[in-house]
Design a protein around this nucleic acid. Structure first.
Lengths: 344, 344
DNA sequence: TTGTATGCGTTATCAT
DNA sequence: ATGATAACGCATACAA
């Protein structure tokens, strides 16, 4: 059961129909300047008439160039990553590129495997958020050697000199903490994430620095580190904080899940929010508008981060070779969102 | 500034190094049966030694087959879609396929554009969730003509005979409603989604049918249709329901956002949940565990849905041609998750 | 079991 | 401004 008409229309067919050479048709299709307006129109019309479209595989094969961007992230179904990828895709699509997505599951071995595959062919460039287990970057350095543009997003990669797009976590956390201080909080706790991860370390530092610059003491017992910043861990940490001798009147959380948990706990302890305690989250997840009171938070501009990463990568793909020797580190601005869980 | 060593190792290089023909090497690489164990080992060793890897573009070009699956969804950064895609990617990766993702933004024109691109080349198959504006399916029918496997997920596509993977929305909603009835609810409302969308219609029908089968009357005024099932619309609808003369004692919501809104509203009206009113959502979003009381809901198994869609598509890609003439409709089982917002 | 020969559709080089 | 020709790396039909 063959399909008899599987014959694809090719450049040659167009050429034959017009009595011109295949090269001429090819030149028209790739907007070569040395083509007269008349033949250009002739060819374009015939292309439409015959419903021709170029075979991108053949084109890539011959030119050794693709329009495909590889994206590696730990998981797609994490709110943050899905937003970043959305931004990457939007920008890429509007500039004629496609994105091929892989999930490393935070598995170093798998990440290397995917990277190696992408490097040996296929990709015009790579955008990657390295996994939590990733502390060596040889698999990424290979891209530089192979002259394939590379952009890292979100996670810092110490020792790897490459393009990076990140949130300014320090500044964002500083901003959040200062917001509490300015509204009158004197004793502010922090629920932090895994301190072996750079972005969570930066958030703790931003919190600390804001206290210091405003003449407030840093009390270790008010800083609760969690492993995954989960809602459940948030409940535990908040409970501990609610049970300290001196009451706290402010709480900076490293994400919205732990902040939502803190709201629940402090309400149970009969604190009025925000009158008696201000609570602020981080990320601006959907839940932040649904908890009661609505959660003040930091918007991480994940979508925009994706757009910027995509733009940076495509610039490098399309620039001349030697430009790639340089790299940029771009910090994405975050936004303080004030709702009802903090005093104005 | 050229890279001097841009010469890629090819099959010919391997062949030359071993004094065998390129076809032999090619056969080893594609696991052709008619190859002796000895040469197979010889070639494989040399391949490793020289660090050769096949050029997938050249291979695709020659064989007219790719390992690339196109995925079109309205947006990646919607919880449901990101989970489905996660499932698609996992299964595809484990079976040697890659996924290339596009966002239609629920824009019919853009959807057609992407589909047409995918159809003229590139894709071994397509997995798509058609946009809300999509009511004609010519762009998808072309895939059948071109003999490219196609799987539709989530949204029903009346009149298009193709592979579909969907939730059994009717049954899920029926199940949710019956759960309320069995726990003693007598007067149950419904907050529904856009009734021009098949899945939301099915959820309303499941609710209605459960009432009928249990001898309860259907009261139109207890059914509130929303456009987007947003939290804000949920607040409005729940307010209206709380203000009806006779109190309701159960509420089936077509998603978790409106259910979360309903919890907030009925708490404000001093209803005890679940003693005085049982509220159940749909989708098992992260918020459902965070609202107070925790929300009973329906888990839509989005990740699993993606896996099944991926599996179905890859089966069709790899099956012989004529198998493709058939199509399947697969209903994914949903799960009733009982938490604290409904009576046991 | 292995080798030889050919061509996929396009683009790049060189010539005109 | 256009044409002729070769070549990209691989898979496959056919021959041996």
């Amino acid at each position: 059961m063959k399909n008899s008409d599987s014959s694809r229309i090719t450049i040659k067919d167009i050429a034959k129909a017009l009595n011109v050479s295949a090269s001429t048709v090819s030149r028209v299709l790739s907007n070569h300047p040395a083509i007269s307006e008349s033949t250009r129109k002739l060819v374009n019309d015939k292309v439409k008439e015959m419903g021709f479209s170029i075979d991108p595989i053949a084109s890539s094969f011959r030119s050794k160039k693709t329009k495909s961007i590889g994206v590696i992230c730990p998981r797609i179904d994490i709110d943050f990553h899905s937003k970043v990828i959305s931004g990457i895709e939007d920008y890429a699509y509007n500039n004629g590129y496609q994105i091929t997505i892989f999930q490393s599951q935070d598995n170093y071995k798998k990440e290397k495997e995917i990277a190696s595959m992408l490097e040996t062919s296929l990709a015009a460039g790579l955008i990657i958020c390295p996994g939590l287990q990733t502390h060596k970057y040889d698999h990424l350095k290979k891209f530089k050697k192979a002259n394939i543009p590379l952009v890292v997003y979100d996670r810092s990669t110490d020792g790897l000199k490459t393009n990076k797009v990140m949130i300014n976590d320090f500044e964002a956390s500083f901003k959040a903490t200062e917001h509490l201080i300015k509204s009158g909080c004197k004793r502010i706790g922090h629920i932090s994430g895994d301190q072996s991860v750079s972005i969570f370390k930066a958030r703790l530092q931003g919190y600390s620095e804001a206290l210091i610059q405003n003449g407030l003491p840093i009390e270790e017992k008010l800083i609760k580190e969690t492993k995954n910043l989960s809602y459940e861990e948030g409940l535990i940490s908040a409970n501990e904080l609610a049970n300290t001798n001196e009451r706290i009147d402010g709480l900076v959380c490293a994400n919205d899940y732990t902040a939502a948990a803190a709201i629940k706990v402090f309400k149970k302890f009969n604190y009025n929010i925000p009158e008696e305690i201000s609570i602020i989250g981080f990320s601006n997840y959907p839940i932040s508008k649904i908890v009661d009171p609505q959660l003040s938070t930091i918007d991480d501009n994940a979508y925009h981060m994706g757009k910027v990463a995509s733009k940076l990568l495509i610039q490098q793909i399309e620039d001349s070779d030697f430009e790639r020797l340089d790299y940029q580190e771009i910090l994405i601005k975050t936004e303080l969102i004030i709702r009802d869980s903090t005093k104005k």
